[in-house]
Design a protein around this nucleic acid. Structure first.
Lengths: 217, 217
DNA sequence: CGTCCAATGTACGAACTGGTACGTTAGTTA
DNA sequence: TAACTAACGTACCAGTTCGTACATTGGACG
């Protein structure tokens, strides 16, 4: 009746949750590193504490494993966003804050960016099946929408740009900087993710959004 | 001595250039569609007028074929940019024009965008080997640099943003809109490439760049 | 302390995939 | 027209890769 009590400090030899999490973590790294087609099930298994058999036992196959990895990655990024409260801030500061949070999250989670890139190469066919993602992502849009409405009421924001457009603008900037840093560096000789330039781009994004929203439509 | 004269209207049965071009075109589509690891040499060959043997005869292997495809894709996009002359335009109009050209090219060449996404998943390891790309791409930066300099002389442009930053901003917007349209649509229900919204985003990009450059640094 | 099942490990196979060995032909040139 | 070479086609191979059949074991529970 009582839950099996694993000795503190030691790990249970057979632990469903632990094995699943181990596989998911490893698979996330492998899929992010090599994309869906480049990733190897055997390689994921080898990097794991367990064996390939367990991948099929718990997830069913490569595709399902990939989908769970992707779903978890989205859930995490949106959960991080949820922790920010900007309701008490004035619209300008609030928008800036949201831009900064998005900026920081992309920088801190390049694997997420790579997974999304991979998913787009596959025309988002897996994301399309994940109905829950829409619900998980709408809060971000609703929040932006509320801030934009307040700004427009105060007469400081233009009205020909909606919340989804602002989200696209912010995400696009952050995403490109991380996703395309390799080709950009190879071609233009500039590392967009160089820590020395981090503040410059963080400020640039905030300015960009504010300058545009407050300009005359 | 004279060049072999193919009968007008008919094609030579054996034609080095034609076969190479056929393979390159087909491979570009396949690599763009499925990425490097997802693309299949057999599939490329099957879509071609010729056979797999010719791929190895002319290109040596899958990787070299991919590199030639990528190099040609870059060469084409930059060549298109070269045709635009903005030297006679005032800085504001010139910047807008460049943004529009970039916007149009990304929209017209989604395969290029997909190839670059794929290349970034591979950490630009192939692009890094293609030394010629730097030379091909620098004119775009030089042009921007000249426009920015004129704008600053006239006192209408801020001076804390350089040509590479502006290029990143413009490319990022255009690239994200095309590259991430699938996940974006699945999650936010908006097709960023919907023709009905084309003018909106084209104008938004121009405004964005101008608003930011002309704002007080 | 015996039973039973979730959890795990080993070994293997069928299909795929990049690449090649070998033979053939079109077209040029002496 | 005979020889020669670039261009091409067929058949095949060796290594890889996803997935599974089968055997085993830890531990919960009566």
């Amino acid at each position: 009746m009582t839950a099996p009590v694993p000795p503190a400090g030691e790990e249970r030899r057979r632990d469903r949750d632990r094995t699943r999490a181990d596989i998911l973590d490893t698979a996330a790294a492998e899929f992010a590193e090599r994309g869906f087609d480049g990733a190897r099930v055997d390689e994921i298994a080898a990097r794991t504490r367990t064996t390939k058999r367990m991948i099929y036992y718990y997830f069913g196959g490569k595709k399902q494993l990939y989908m769970e990895v992707l779903e978890r990655a989205y859930a995490r990024i949106r959960a991080a966003e949820q922790t920010v409260s900007v309701g008490h801030l004035d619209p300008l500061t609030a928008i800036r804050r949201i831009a900064e949070v998005t900026f920081d999250h992309h920088e801190a989670n390049p694997d997420f960016v790579r997974l999304v890139s991979t998913e787009n190469i596959h025309n988002a066919e897996h994301v399309a099946e994940m109905t829950g993602l829409v619900r998980v992502n709408t809060p971000a849009i609703l929040l932006l929408d509320e801030i934009l409405a307040r700004g427009r009421e105060q007469g400081i924001f233009r009205d020909d740009i909606d919340a989804i457009d602002v989200h696209m603008l912010i995400s696009g900037f952050c995403f490109f900087r991380v996703a395309n840093r390799h080709t950009f560096r190879a071609i233009f000789g500039r590392d967009l993710v160089d820590p020395a330039r981090r503040e410059h781009y963080r400020k640039m994004l905030g300015d960009l959004v504010v300058d545009h929203l407050t300009a005359l439509g």
